[in-house]
Design a protein around this nucleic acid. Structure first.
Lengths: 237, 237
DNA sequence: TAAATAGTGTCTCTTAGACAATATTAT
DNA sequence: ATAATATTGTCTAAGAGACACTATTTA
């Protein structure tokens, strides 16, 4: 038995702790996740989520924010903790426990975070087994992710899907100004199925979370839609 | 920058990692959580969640199961990971990262896990601030929990509440055989508000998750209700 | 019979989906 | 005019809450 009050932490061998971040976006009709190719170490050459060791003086969230900053200055993103993965065999080197985070970016931010000449790529998610498992394509072909990062991506996608119905998280995947059609498209891609346009429109407009900017969509070859902005839900009556 | 592929884990000082388990049940009109009094170490004398250091050869879930076993042989409970708490200051001794789990027990199991002559008690949860924060009473009086265990309890209560609407998790808080009224009571306590009896009954019976045992409640001073059993959702057509 | 809870029937209200009609813009 | 999408109107169906009524058991 090893309870926290009867033993000293120094009596125990300590695992390494990392954070890994699944940065998601919507790319056309698929969910995209930012991957980088591991130059060395275990799984060298494989695609992996960006991550890093947790420093002794930073919180877990700060570590995740540091990882985002290192990836092309991504900041101000929606960032939330997903789950912690601690199988003893998940890293062949030594015991490494990984705290996984999910970040959401719109496609522009996401693309800007990929420097031209680096081993960073957009993985496109295929859902397998009702979405509880995923497969990731890079440049059309399915790839095997390093460590248990496929599980982390699956967890992120499922979390995102679950949140979409209840929270205004869809806005995190769009630029500040967007049309209802674009918002609906995000919901359809994340949810993996078509949604009823009337119902979606009614629900969104009734939610009180959208503000009509009064502007119209530009440069489209059809009737332009109204542009909306997400209203921060700060001050409630 | 410290990415997983460019540094060796041995280059970094390692934190300690623990699991802490919020074992919840329903006690009359309140949510109960199992607490034990810390005999020594930081927060000596304070009430805390049961927990322990993660061993190098066990997974996080195995560590949580070990903690449950140590608490009076609790086993076969619903057990799920909640979140990981890693503020650098959360433990005054050294950097300790805690992976929090939630376990659900029915009141009988819960009571059996409390030996008569130990410093183990049932904390009763008061919800504060819309349930996003909690206060815990032991023997009527509010107590201050050790470390950030109040946050862990709040996270557990909120997770439980969120799950109740979508999953058959209510059954984990009841014995194998129960009446619809008992199930409704669990939902009302967890949800913190009354639910419509007709609607609840309709929804539960229509869910296909209940099997009528054909038996009736015994030893009650009113019309006895039918006893139901939860149907495992294994084989689907 | 009274008390207490189990269980049923039915009405209304809200919300989502289906379907159709009209509006606006570019080509 | 045609293509394409935006936007609105209305009908229907499902589910939840409200309310009233009947049923069953013990005291």
């Amino acid at each position: 038995m090893a309870t926290t009050d009867e033993y000293d932490p120094d009596d125990f061998e300590r695992p390494s702790v990392t954070v890994d971040v699944a940065i998601l976006t919507v790319v056309e009709d698929r969910i995209g996740v930012l991957l980088h190719r591991r130059p060395k170490g275990p799984f060298a050459g494989s695609w992996a989520l960006p991550g890093g060791f947790v420093q002794m003086d930073e919180s877990l969230r700060e570590a995740a924010e540091r990882v985002l900053r290192d990836k092309g200055g991504l900041t101000e993103l929606h960032l939330e903790q997903l789950a912690t993965f601690g199988d003893p065999e998940r890293d062949p080197r030594t015991r490494v426990i990984s705290v996984a985070y999910m970040a959401l970016a719109d496609l522009e931010e996401f693309r800007e975070s990929i420097p031209a000449d680096t081993d960073v790529a957009t993985g496109l998610v295929n859902e397998v087994d009702d979405g509880w498992q995923v497969e990731v394509d890079v440049d059309v072909d399915p790839v095997e992710l390093a460590f248990d990062h496929d599980q982390i991506v699956a967890t992120a996608v499922n979390r995102l899907r679950g949140k979409l119905d209840w929270t205004p998280v869809g806005f995190q995947l769009l630029p500040e100004i967007f049309t209802l059609r674009e918002l609906q498209h995000v919901h359809e891609v994340v949810g993996g199925r078509a949604v009823n346009t009337q119902s979606f429109r009614r629900r969104m407009l009734a939610s009180g979370e959208l503000e009509d900017t009064g502007e119209l969509e530009q440069d489209v070859n059809h009737r332009p839609g109204s542009l909306y902005r997400f209203i921060e839900q700060g001050a409630q009556s």
